[in-house]
Design a protein around this nucleic acid. Structure first.
Length: 476
RNA sequence: CGGGGCGUGGCGCAGUCCGGUAGCGCACCUGCUUUGGGAGCAGGGUGUCGGAGGUUCGAAUCCUCUCGCCCCGACCA
């Protein structure tokens, strides 16, 4: 630590990398494209994971674990799936000192092995639905890795369900997208646009893909979660059939949905500033850090006693508190370090405070700092954390709204995505137009919203009739 | 896979053009003074100069090969 991060305005990419490393969220591993998630980063991920896990369980799902090694032949059973994932698969060819008869793929996602197993477990409509989630690592051989955003191995949850009808599968797909929206907005304080992906952005093997799209502070889009209605594509490839009420044998309908450690990157890019990370209180590993200030031994003892008492009382009020008891650093150094690490609230206690039964409270996001009577601080702190959570979301939403522009002119669209921001424009719905836009602007159709912009118009690129507006932006 | 940059104490770098005792900052250790926004002084330890060959009396420096990483562009959560 003891260094400053590159200012966001100077170089956004470097700012991001600096923040991640200086906050000790992650570090580069010896293998290119791999990273180590450090304890502080992992604590953050655990908090995110625990919230989401609860939400997934509350919607009726159970956790299980499927293996990371998948027979290569499985990956080839669903045509689109093979084509989509083949280039980024890592393959194990040797084991036990011998060349394997059949190579094993390190899962890039687990549809194939999971539906193979479901096929064994399902006989009748009474066995449906199957609502399973797993927390796992997956591997995708990315050519251009970035900490948390794109690494060869990453952590995620993947839900895989099987249903008796199309309608039920579609309902499940949308239900989980909504879970993700709530998770992003209420837990991570990241506002998102939910919607559907265009055909060319669809998951390999899915009927339809839905997503939530967030806007980072450089105006680029980040896909924060996806939910797929897989139709019967995998059921057909893996003989996942059941006997229905009427005695007929039918293929099941599947869905899958996932959120990954990429979300950690989203939190960094969404809320951070030039002093480092800013964490939403709901997921911050430490919500309030107490920095004791002292010079003489007597002061030190008195200050620490006050700090310990305060810590106990706050902890019993449900606040995650940490006392920075290190002797080797001066208070100013500690202030800077905890700011880099994004701790929402800092509590300073010095001899003057002890004498007056007060503490100094400082907010990470607004930099506000003021003395406050200790009793009052204890009473108001949980609420303060909630207020910060809300303010972060509002600030992010304001930023996003200010950088989302309704456009009807192609030149305007080019300028907007170049500068950083979302264009909300009409699109004729064709693959050709989408490809042309991408070619000419490096921006893609991020999502087709469910309701907003559903009025007829003319495609911003082709001039052909359009049924509705879509979000277009450059993306991570 | 194309373009660019870089490998030298734990970290960040200088030294390489023009070969001649391997240096600086930070960090670390000890001591004293300090402590309300990244402390000061004194003392101390730290290197197969990414690797392999070669040229030379002598290579971090020159030559050949090689490995790795980072950044920017085409694909992806």
């Amino acid at each position: 630590m003891a260094q400053k991060v590159t200012p966001m305005s100077e170089d956004y990419s470097r700012w991001y990398t600096d923040v991640v490393q200086m906050a000790e969220l992650a570090d580069y591993a010896p293998v290119k494209g791999c990273m180590v998630i450090r304890p502080y980063g992992f604590a953050l991920w655990e908090n995110m994971r625990d919230h989401l896990d609860r939400m997934i369980k509350e919607t009726g799902h159970v956790n299980a674990y499927f293996p990371a090694l998948i027979p290569e032949s499985f990956m080839k059973k669903e045509a689109e799936h093979v084509e989509g994932f083949a280039p980024e698969c890592a393959v194990v060819t040797h084991g036990g000192g011998k060349k394997l008869e059949e190579p094993l793929v390190l899962r890039p996602t687990s549809e194939t092995i999971i539906y193979h197993m479901y096929a064994k477990w399902v006989m009748s409509y009474r066995d449906l639905p199957i609502l399973i989630n797993q927390w796992a690592n997956v591997f995708r051989w990315e050519l251009r890795p970035r900490l948390f955003l794109r690494t060869l191995e990453f952590l995620w949850q993947e839900g895989h369900t099987a249903h008796a009808t199309y309608e039920e599968a579609e309902e499940e797909t949308l239900k989980m997208l909504e879970v993700y929206r709530v998770f992003a907005e209420e837990v991570l304080a990241i506002p998102v646009y939910p919607g559907a992906k265009s055909d060319s952005e669809r998951f390999a093997g899915a009927l339809r893909t839905y997503c939530i799209e967030a806007m980072m502070q450089d105006g680029k889009a980040l896909q924060a979660g996806t939910s797929h209605n897989l139709g019967q594509n995998f059921a057909k490839a893996f003989d996942l059939v059941f006997q229905d009420k009427d005695g007929e044998t039918r293929h099941a309908w599947n869905t899958s949905w996932g959120v990954s450690t990429r979300m950690v990157g989203a939190v960094v890019m969404m809320h951070g500033d030039d002093n480092g990370l800013i964490l939403p209180p709901r997921i911050a590993p430490i919500q309030a850090v107490i920095v004791p200030i002292y010079s003489s031994d007597e002061d030190r003892a008195a200050v620490f006693q006050a700090a310990e008492t305060l810590k106990k009382r706050l902890a019993s009020a449900g606040v995650r508190v940490h006392i920075d008891a290190r002797d080797q650093h001066k208070p100013g150094w500690k202030f800077a370090e905890w700011e880099q690490k994004g701790v929402p609230l800092r509590i300073e206690i010095g001899p003057k405070d002890v004498a007056k039964s007060q503490v100094v409270l400082a907010r990470r996001d607004t930099k506000e700092k003021a003395p406050i009577p200790t009793e009052e601080a204890i009473a108001l702190l949980p609420g303060k954390l909630g207020e910060i959570q809300g303010d972060l979301f509002e600030r992010a939403r304001k930023f996003r709204d200010e950088h989302t522009h309704v456009v009807d002119d192609y030149e305007d669209l080019k300028k907007i995505v170049e500068k950083g921001g979302f264009a909300f424009a009409h699109w004729d719905g064709t693959r050709e137009t989408e490809a042309a836009i991408k070619e000419e602007t490096k921006a893609t159709i991020r999502c087709i919203p469910f309701e907003e912009g559903a009025e007829p118009g003319r495609c911003v690129r082709s001039g052909n009739p359009s049924k509705q507006r879509v979000y277009i932006a450059r993306a991570y």
